[in-house]
């Protein structure tokens, strides 16, 4: 569920035809109005964006559904902190920043019957040519691995609460690498698309990173990078420490 301040997921889900009952009874009237203002502003922006997306489609291409991603719910690796900074080019984008207090956080994946169109909302708003297009026929395998994480429970800290999320990773034949963490809802939608979009039927589902060549497997692989960082590095430091200890003991 989206956090209170960002209506992006709520608005995109309404485009997907999902019910979205207002559940703001815990908020004051003033807060409810502020939230509604943000939601309506986001809706107007998204209508404009979807009109632009329509222009990108081929005559026989149709949108199946939309997959929203935010900094609050998904990863912030490339859209938070320094990487999340953005200088608006147009008045509309400046207004978007003012209304939503958001920079590069909101991203959208548009599933059509032929491809995935991915863009960062603010960039696309500034320039409708700022998007990535992943044709299904250029996708051979997709890593869609489910993960679980636990946090201390609200009642007692020793009773853990479990959350599920998905790790998504793929590389297209024209060497575009896409890595992202999906929420449980995102993951279920992606899974359903893999099953129900006929052009995705040939795409293999795996639980590990697949790259067409070894160079990309080594240098464009966050899984491998984290393994090196969290396993390889401590082992290397350990060996070095042991060597120096032995050297000191035996005067090597």
């Amino acid at each position: 569920m989206a956090i209170f301040t960002n209506p992006f997921i709520e608005v995109v889900n309404s485009f997907n035809g999902l019910p979205n009952k207002p559940i703001n009874s815990h908020l004051s009237t003033e807060m409810q109005k502020r939230k509604q203002q943000r939601t309506v502003a986001m809706y107007l922006t998204m209508r404009h964006i979807l009109d632009e997306v329509q222009q990108l489609l081929q005559p026989d291409e149709k949108i199946i559904n939309l997959l929203p991603m935010t900094n609050e719910e998904n990863s912030q690796m490339a859209t938070g902190g320094i990487m999340g900074m953005y200088a608006p080019q147009t008045e509309e984008t400046k207004q978007y920043i003012h209304d939503q207090t958001s920079l590069r956080g909101n991203r959208l994946m548009v599933f059509t019957n032929q491809r995935i169109i991915f863009f960062i909302v603010i960039e696309f708003l500034d320039n409708p040519k700022q998007y990535f297009s992943y044709n299904y026929d250029q996708l051979q395998a997709v890593k869609l691995a489910e993960r679980k994480i636990s946090v201390p429970g609200n009642e007692h800290f020793w009773q853990r609460e479990y959350f599920t999320y998905y790790s998504l990773d793929f590389e297209t034949d024209d060497k575009h690498v896409f890595t992202e963490f999906l929420t449980n809802e995102n993951g279920l939608l992606f899974k359903r698309n893999l099953l129900t979009i006929p052009a995705m039927a040939h795409v293999q589902i795996t639980d590990r990173v697949v790259r067409p060549n070894k160079f990309d497997y080594i240098f464009s692989n966050t899984d491998l990078a984290s393994k090196i960082l969290f396993v390889g590095l401590p082992v290397f430091i350990g060996i070095m420490f042991l060597m120096s200890l032995l050297g000191a003991l035996f005067n090597w």
């Binding site: 608005v11 309404s14 979205n20 207002p22 809706y43 107007l44």
Partner: peptide, 18 residues
């Protein structure tokens, strides 16, 4: 169930007004 779509209808109404 139908009231579950309140937000979407309101948003569409604001869009029409706009």
């Amino acid at each position: 169930y139908l009231r579950g779509y309140t937000l979407d209808i309101e948003n569409r109404s604001y869009y029409q007004i706009w």
